[in-house]
């Protein structure tokens, strides 16, 4: 009894440490702003007021939904194309060798470099933003899947074949589950990229969403309290997305891969 009590105290203490640290940081920030009142950058208090200010207008909810909508589409399209393609490319060595130079050239190009082309093809609007997210997610995901397929131990493939699986059942019943742990990690990282890209895309290619909120607040009268408020909201939503995918990672479906690694 005593020890569980001690453990729970320890747990709340573990939670306490970062909380104290954050409070200290916020205090320092507030102090800094207090000492230099002439600058435009808001302190934590003004930022909080900014966030509160955004809610009654309903705008913020609409902007979050708009951003999530674009991320969902861009990300899902990338998954739908990259995963089957990656399975096939990873499986057929020759295709991989043919494709590899192109992939290596495309890879270092920032998705933001595609902004002019996105606007040229799709105009200013949702499609351009979705396209940019797609571009940002597609390559990392494709490369993750190709790599994962190529590192599946040969015994699994041979065993699957030995029990009479043809190519398609082999992909579904052996290859896909074998790469699932890496795939989920890849999906989590890619979703993070999508969330980075959507903000940038919205600053240029559309006029709604959290990225637009930030540029708009600056352009319409230097409302830096709203700029920082927008940044905080972007951080919080991104964190929630990441937490959600991490909980998928830990689901019972993937328990084996976690235990294997330990």
């Amino acid at each position: 009894m005593d020890s569980t009590y001690g453990q729970s105290v320890l747990k709340s203490l573990a939670w306490l440490k970062p909380a104290v640290f954050i409070l200290l940081l916020l205090g320092a920030w507030q102090m800094e702003v207090f000492l230099h009142p002439q600058q435009l950058l808001p302190g934590p208090w003004k930022t909080t007021l900014g966030i509160v200010d955004l809610f009654p207008r309903g705008l913020i909810v609409r902007y979050i939904v708009a951003s999530l909508f674009r991320v969902t589409w861009g990300f899902c399209l990338a998954v739908l194309v990259a995963v089957p393609l990656g399975l096939a490319v990873g499986w057929y060595r020759r295709v991989e060798m043919a494709l590899n130079p192109i992939l290596q050239i495309l890879r270092p190009i920032s998705p933001l470099a595609w902004i002019p082309i996105a606007i040229l093809w799709f105009g200013v609007g949702d499609l351009a933003a979705i396209f940019l997210i797609f571009v940002g997610c597609f390559l990392p995901l494709l490369l993750t899947v190709i790599n994962a397929v190529q590192s599946v131990p040969g015994v699994y493939i041979n065993a699957g074949r030995n029990f009479g699986l043809g190519p398609v059942p082999l992909m579904r019943q052996v290859l896909l589950p074998a790469i699932l742990p890496r795939l989920i990690t890849g999906l989590r990282i890619t979703l993070g990229i999508a969330w980075l890209v959507v903000v940038a895309a919205e600053m240029i290619a559309v006029n709604s969403g959290l990225g637009f909120l930030i540029v708009d607040a600056r352009n319409a009268g230097n409302r830096y309290d709203l700029v920082v408020a927008g940044m905080v909201i972007i951080g919080v939503v991104g964190l929630l997305l990441d937490t959600w995918v991490r909980s998928l990672e830990r689901s019972s479906l993937l328990r084996w891969s976690f235990e294997e690694k330990q």
Binding site: V155, Y156, N158, A159, N162, P177, A178, W256, S257
Partner: peptide, 14 residues
């Protein structure tokens, strides 16, 4: 005709 690998051939996800 089934090939039995060392225990490495067991599928960890099943």
């Amino acid at each position: 005709r089934i090939f039995v690998f060392q225990e490495r051939g067991v599928f960890p996800w099943l």
